[in-house]
Amino acid sequence: MDLSLFPQILLNGLMIGGIYALIASGFTLILGVIQVFNFAQGQFYMLGAFIAIAVVTNLGLPYPVAIIVALLATAILGALLYFAVIQWTTRSGFFNTMLVTVAFGTIVAQTAMLSFGSREAVLPPVVPGTLSLGGVTIPNGKLVVIAGAVVVMAALHFFMKTRIGVSMLAASENRDVASLQGINPKRVFWITMAVGCGLCGVAGALVAPVLAASGTMGSTIFIKALLVVLVGGTGSMSGALLAAFVVGIAESFAFHFVGHLGLLVIFVLVAILIFFRPGGLLGKPLPVPGE
């Protein structure tokens, strides 16, 4: 192998990792706090991208505004999903809620297919050009994505330190104790849904200038998010962040050496990892209802 390619492949992986991190953190937050396996997570990512593109191209607003609009819109949709559907199903079980999110994801995906078809939508690069460092090229746009991801993750970190954030953590640790301490579970839950879905929306808005958006982008990214959560451990935010980069880099290398079968290699690697660390890289095994 050409050794000069090594840093480039590594960097490619890091850049993909930034995107995965945002989606996976939203997913793991929802799974950890309200124990909802949100299969519709990827669709919020897709919606975020389309909203951002629409805001910039149709309304002519600057890109940073578009990110905020995408965040708010997907967060509100997430909260609505909680109030309209999920709050009625959480009581009747984990699978019931999961199925509801599967069905919701289908509705969003098919509606997107009917309205956009395969029409890809793009934003012109916000920060054009590439950065060259000793034979390694990094598109500036992707640096922006990583920077954005870091900012959002930092904001999330501080959000979790606020009163509501602490309540969310408390609820994820022990629901009964949390409600004894006067934490209103319903409030915690809808805010969790809003934050988790909003994170995906932001992820979509962030990648909009780098990747073309399409109606199917949500379904493809969800599988990667799933792998990230598996590697990072359920409910662990920092685990998700670390795992996102690990998966990204593994994927980049696997593709370079094994081609399209690289995905199989990653599956095997993930299986081995779970064998040695059932809780993922940083997470600890969740208390499971009934066990």
Binding site: I223, L226, L227, V229, L230, T234, L261, L263, L264, F267, V268, V270, A271, I274, P278, P285, L286, V288, G290, E291
Partner: peptide
């Protein structure tokens, strides 16, 4: 997967579902 409880079993299942199809 089985010695590691329900959640790992569940997620493992998803990986298997994807891997076998691939």
């Amino acid at each position: 997967a089985i010695p590691r409880g329900m959640m790992v079993f569940l997620m493992f299942g998803m990986v298997i579902a994807l891997a076998i199809q691939q």
